[in-house]
Design a binder for these strands. Structure first.
Lengths: 238, 238
DNA sequence: TTATCGTCAAGAGCGGTGCTCTCGATTTTT
DNA sequence: AAAAATCGAGAGCACCGCTCTTGACGATAA
């Protein structure tokens, strides 16, 4: 078995996990810029150079935290949305909104890591890109379900003035890409979904990053109201 | 006159300006976290300690850059919106959107500095808070003008389901605060404006921070379409 | 015109950072 | 049991923000 080689590998896996745990805890208090390998090593009673046996660079540790962050957010959204009846599409949308906001407020530094300013000099590896779609997948399935169930107001033939000429084709191309996440949905609804998604993350970003300070004090009712408004933009029946 | 002491003060003002210029240029290449006083000093042919005669700490230099950023964005929005006829309210909204997006794409690191993740360990002083409302003021005036001109669809008595009970009062309180920026506008329209503002900055944040990579390739037509959709949410006649 | 006083650049130095390299010790594999 | 792989520890490099001291310069007052 692998039991023999596990002797060393088990302690290695354990130490790797301990490093990321301490790093995540320090991230929550110091922020991404203040994350220091030496501090993590010090807290583990290790010498700083030993950390490099587990993470070859600070960026690799950051990558691990970013992937964890995407998965944590994705999981929060998935479980939040799963608790609502499948045919309650408005409820599913609101559950997604609350899950995103709740997770972001509970983990502001991790949220900043994955949806805030890119860390300078850090290039996100491919592994992070795959993990970052979990929340969007939930939205896509929700929109697709709602559309097929007839719960989304159909494109009112020309309500938002149709874009003219060449840009129409570019719009359609991008819409086709996005439609992979929400099958069968017409272009117009695809763009409504993108708009709603932008509104959700715009709000959460504003709130987490403090842009509402001294302006909106009762965030929760305002968020609820705004996301209901946004459901209207999305075309969900109220 | 003060001409004599100006001799000294003039070179001081000039050096101060040179420092912020170099810092801004380095910010554009290295990002906020990579901004180093020593590097700025080196580029000026100065010794590092001399910088502290002009900016007592790295945070003070950051503060100067942040205030400059708010003012640059505010000015871009103001001039962009001013070029549109006063009674073309949809045009004014779109001009605001394009100004925000254009400035953010042209100065991504400065945008990240003012609307992205807070710099860890940095506490924004009061001076920055005052400069950061210039863009919002433009939006407020625009919404107020449009409302008074009857260009905004009035609250359709209960279209978005009215929030119940106690949260209604909290909503109204915050709406009153925001109304200082958009006089005479009813609560419902205030929240539509907040929603539209979130959509705009949500989109721009997504685009600047690379969340649209491999998904939306033709950003400009998609942005135009989305912001027209958002104008509908705001209630602006199409 | 001379003396004084404030302002300035420069240098050394402190404690911190990411990261590299080497060196023994220990564990795993052969 | 011998060989190979892995690991922690330590020293060291170049960099960072920031502080303190020193000596030179220039504006101002006697």
């Amino acid at each position: 078995m692998t039991a023999s080689r596990t002797a060393r590998e088990r302690v290695r896996a354990e130490l790797t996990r301990e490093i990321t745990d301490i790093a995540r805890r320090r991230l929550a208090t110091e922020g991404a810029g203040g994350l220091s390998l030496r501090a993590v090593a010090r807290e583990m009673g290790m010498v700083s150079s030993a950390i490099y046996r587990y993470f070859p660079s600070r960026d690799d540790l950051l990558t691990a935290l970013i992937i964890d962050g995407y998965n944590a957010l994705g999981e929060a959204v998935e479980t939040g949305e799963a608790e609502v009846a499948r045919d309650d599409h408005l409820g599913r949308w609101l559950a997604v909104c609350r899950a995103v906001r709740g997770w972001a407020l509970a983990h502001p530094h991790e949220f900043a890591l994955i949806y805030g300013s890119p860390v300078p000099g850090y290039q996100a590896p491919q592994a992070t890109i795959e993990a970052r779609v979990r929340d969007v997948v939930v939205l896509g399935r929700l929109v697709s379900d709602a559309w097929r169930a007839g719960a989304i107001r159909p494109p009112s033939g020309g309500a938002p003035q149709e874009s003219a000429g060449e840009s129409a084709g570019e719009l359609a191309g991008d819409a086709a890409t996005i439609r992979e996440l929400m099958p069968e949905v017409p272009d117009d609804v695809v763009w409504r979904a993108v708009t709603a998604w932008s509104t959700l993350y715009g709000w959460v970003t504003f709130e987490v990053f403090g842009q509402f300070d001294n302006t909106i004090e009762h965030r929760e009712p305002a968020f609820e109201h705004t996301m209901r408004l946004t459901a209207g933009t999305l075309g969900l029946a109220q």
